[in-house]
């Protein structure tokens, strides 16, 4: 579990604002790193040429991807939310991928801040707040009609809104916890398998061949799977956010 430990860096553990500790931790460092990577990625694709180069093409593919996601799920009004969903998607994607960097081979180790629900929770609450703000700003109290889906029979009106309300309120938790659990589970799985490799090799060459080698092969496969999960979780977060925004904008 050492890989999930948060440690203050550069002797900043006494930093605080209003009594709240804001130490620059390894987690914060990887957040800054992710932000810098995204900034570099987009900045290198900002040549704004009529005929794009490879890098510009990559950046335009990403913005086009988010643009399509929003126009498919929200409609023409989704364009306004492209900056937010793009930031969300890229931030989570970079965090997940940077956390998978094999820095162990040079003696350091990567930190995946998306495996902390304090981090994913902030993003989930941000998304949820945007849905609430947009929903109430656009529809006022009519936004509550979200809890009464079309075609609800009259005699179920005492039950359906309660269920809808609960499922609505669960959204920020499911959003934040899904990402945190998926990232943590993958890292723990890799850690468990690598401990199999090390412990079996220490127990003797026979054990090492019998348990260590298959575990290592499995680790290779699961590393590939983790790369996929890193992308999929970022996509799921962006997709669900856009679906929730659709609820707020179009009310079902």
């Amino acid at each position: 579990m050492h890989q999930f430990t948060i440690e203050p860096m550069f002797g900043t553990d006494h930093w605080a604002i209003g009594g709240y500790n804001i130490a620059f931790t390894n987690s914060a460092m990887w957040m800054v790193l992710a932000a810098v990577v995204i900034w570099a990625f987009v900045a290198l694709g900002m040549k704004r040429q009529l005929v794009p180069g490879r890098w510009q093409m990559a950046v335009e593919t990403m913005t086009g991807f988010i643009d399509n996601l929003l126009s498919a799920n929200v409609g023409p009004e989704g364009k306004k939310f492209v900056p937010y969903v793009f930031s969300l998607f890229m931030f989570i994607l970079c965090a997940n991928l940077l956390g998978l960097l094999p820095l162990g081979v040079i003696g350091s180790h990567a930190f995946t801040f998306t495996s902390h629900f304090t981090a994913t929770g902030v993003l989930a609450i941000l998304s949820f707040s945007i849905v609430l703000i947009v929903g109430f700003a656009r529809h006022g109290f009519h936004f509550f009609s979200l809890f009464v889906p079309h075609g609800t029979p009259g005699w179920l009106l005492w039950l359906i809104p309660v269920i809808e309300l609960v499922s609505f309120l669960v959204r920020p938790f499911s959003l934040g916890l899904r990402l945190f659990v998926a990232m943590m589970a993958g890292h723990i799985l890799l850690e468990v398998l690598s401990s199999f490799v090390i412990n079996s090799a220490n127990a003797g060459p026979g054990w090492g061949l019998m348990i260590g080698v298959p575990s290592f092969l499995l680790m290779i496969g699961i590393s590939a799977l983790e790369l996929l999960v890193a992308v999929i979780q970022a996509y799921v977060f962006a997709l669900l956010t856009s679906l929730y925004i659709n609820d707020a904008v179009n009310l079902h």
Binding site: W15, I22, T25, M31, F113, H116
Partner: peptide, 9 residues
């Protein structure tokens, strides 16, 4: 760590 996490996030 929650305050530091939220702040830096």
């Amino acid at each position: 760590t929650y305050s530091s996490q939220i702040f830096w996030m």
